[in-house]
Amino acid sequence: MRLTCPLCGPRDRREFYYYGSDDYLNRPAEGDGPQAWDAYLHLRDNPAGITHDLWYHDMGCSSWLRVTRNTVTHEIHAVDAVAAPAKGGAK
């Protein structure tokens, strides 16, 4: 399995760490009830098809990545950086 890091290019799966569903990016707002926190921490879909994961390029550029892939065909559809590039920033 290979992922195409937006910075480093196509890299081997060994360079990445899998952090689970990208639900972790949607943190409940302050003051949200226990149900929202329960969903954030524990409730996960288990789709046959397109899914969105959170990966970390720990052996590479240290980018957090959102990976769109298909659990049925194992296709990788997209690998996007979670952080938007800073305006006037470096790469």
Binding site: L7, C8, S62, A86, G89, K91
Partner: peptide, 19 residues
């Protein structure tokens, strides 16, 4: 740029990660 270095004589600026 990512995966590159800038070289001037013995001095090098090597890309080593995001930003």
């Amino acid at each position: 740029d990512p995966n590159r270095q800038s070289v001037n004589g013995a001095m090098r600026l090597v890309w080593t990660g995001r930003e």
